[in-house]
């Protein structure tokens, strides 16, 4: 959603239980369970953390802040999930946050020792937002298992910055901070690879796309909405109409203020 700073902070407060200041750049941290996501979160934020639950859910919500190059950042640790196709509460929360909270940067943490499975989540995130950084964690473990990952060519394949880290050893974190800053400030503009579906799916998408193009004023990828429609994903449609209502209210406010002038 494209929202004013005040609207954004209200939305974050009410729907995601996170307090964000207007000057803070926002980061979402996504990843599978057990990939060292919380190690990275702790390393970035140190002791500046808040923990609690997501509003109305029994799922942990952790967020924290840090400064880098005199810029204040707010980082939200999303629940660890294998996918965003929303079969569990955790996935629903992660998906809604990425779709509707509009974070400035999304960092997807991948386990270098099981790249293929972790890419599943990364590719799904790519469909939602372009401002993604891939953090290839557990490089030390991968090395122990004799796995060699060609990072520059992965970067080319994915179209987003890839930072190799071994967070438990504190390796690569400085580069991660730097890349986050560059993407957040627009210095670096990733062009994430989009999933190529099989012809059946693609032709069905073509059929649906014209119908969904106008739904969100392009603040959310029409392709993603069409995919969820094909998926028959009820929970997403609920969230979508829910957040559309908010958008609508903001739109009305804006129209009214224009009339008043």
């Amino acid at each position: 959603m494209i929202l004013s700073a005040e609207k954004k902070s209200l939305l974050w407060q009410n729907y995601f239980g996170v307090t964000i200041r207007n000057d803070q750049l926002s980061i979402a941290l996504a990843g599978n369970p057990n990939v060292g996501k919380s190690t990275i979160f702790n390393a970035l934020t140190g002791l500046h953390q808040h923990t609690g639950n997501w509003p109305g859910k029994t799922v942990n919500n952790a967020h924290g802040s840090y400064q880098y190059q005199k810029k204040p950042f707010l980082i939200v640790d999303l629940p660890g999930t294998y996918s965003l196709l929303a079969h569990t509460v955790e996935e629903q929360i992660a998906r809604d946050f990425l779709c509707f909270a509009n974070p400035d940067v999304t960092v997807v943490v991948l386990d270098a020792t099981s790249l293929e499975r972790n890419l599943n989540l990364a590719l799904q995130v790519f469909e939602i937002t372009p401002n993604v950084i891939v953090c290839l964690n557990l490089m030390d473990e991968a090395k122990k298992k004799n796995l060699v990952i060609d990072v520059p060519s992965l970067e080319r394949e994915l179209g987003v910055p890839v930072v190799a880290t071994a967070a438990r050893q504190g390796k690569g974190l400085e580069e991660l901070r730097e890349k986050i800053l560059q993407v957040a400030t627009g210095l670096l503009q990733p062009t994430p690879r989009q999933i190529k579906y099989s012809s059946d799916v693609e032709s069905a998408l073509k059929e649906l796309l014209p119908l969904v193009e106008n739904i969100t004023n392009n603040s959310l990828s029409p392709r993603w909405i069409a995919l969820r429609l094909l998926d028959g994903d009820q929970s997403f449609l609920e969230s979508l109409s829910n957040f559309l209502d908010i958008d609508q209210v903001s739109f009305q406010d804006w129209e009214e203020s224009k009339c008043a002038q």
Binding site: L115, E116, L119, L147, V148, I149, R193
Partner: peptide, 8 residues
Amino acid sequence: ITKHVLSS
């Protein structure tokens, strides 16, 4: 993607 970037 994995095929292109991963070797063991």
